[in-house]
Amino acid sequence: MLTSRVKAFIGVSIVISIIIALHYLGVLNGVEQSVRAVMSVPSGFVYKKTHQFASEGEQQHAQDTARAAFDSAKFILLSEENESLRRQLNFISKTPYSSIGGDIIGQDVEPVGNTIIINRGTHDGIENGQPVIAYDGIFVGKIVRTEESTAVIRLLHDGQSKVAATILNNDHSIGIVEGGYGISVRMNFIPQNEHVSPGDVIITSGLEKGIPRGLVIGRVEAVEKEAYQPFQKAILSTAADFEHLVTVSVITGI
């Protein structure tokens, strides 16, 4: 005979299983959308109120910093690349890529995740894998989950973030920029024989499907180079200020 506790455990597990099954079958879509719609208003308000800059000066400083990194990348590219590359760099105003602006309405509740939620979803043409930018082209992350009216963005410094990147040095070194669970952002797989210096600007390389070339990622802070390793690593400071993001743009139509 089953004890009452075993029966209770089985009963609760069955109810949870039914709800999970209904979710994946899409039966609960209406309920979930309604809950999100209701909750997004107050949570978006709280997020905005607590993440916006304390003062106009602080906001201006962050924008100037991001702008400086962007302008630096822009200058180097414009001076070194051809007209085609120049068109790509000024993607915000001159390229065929369109973008959709969205307000951040919350952030993830996972213990080690660095993700945010925006009030744009599949209804607005958002798809998984699309790049997300702040200001005039500062890369902040990628779309990892979409719902009808919301989307989740995995930020660059999340532990599972990866993006193909190029350093704007003489070698135009390529590698993979990876997040470090909120602790650091680093660029791996840089060929050992290429010269990388602190201060070098890093942009998206365009070698990854769906991510255009020229989105500014950040600058090299330090280089880790071991003689016996085939690749070197660079520790980055990101151009985006993830603590004060309030609105972002999703690049679509790539």
């Binding site: 999970i20 909750m39 993830d108 995740g113 990892v144």
Partner: peptide, 25 residues
């Protein structure tokens, strides 16, 4: 706990069910 974790699940990136199951059990 079941209801609360169902709502919180909507704000998580992990596959649906992880928070709901662990929170309720």
């Amino acid at each position: 706990a079941f209801s609360v974790h169902f709502f919180i699940e909507l704000y998580a990136v992990s596959p649906f069910g992880i928070l709901l199951f662990s929170g309720t059990i």
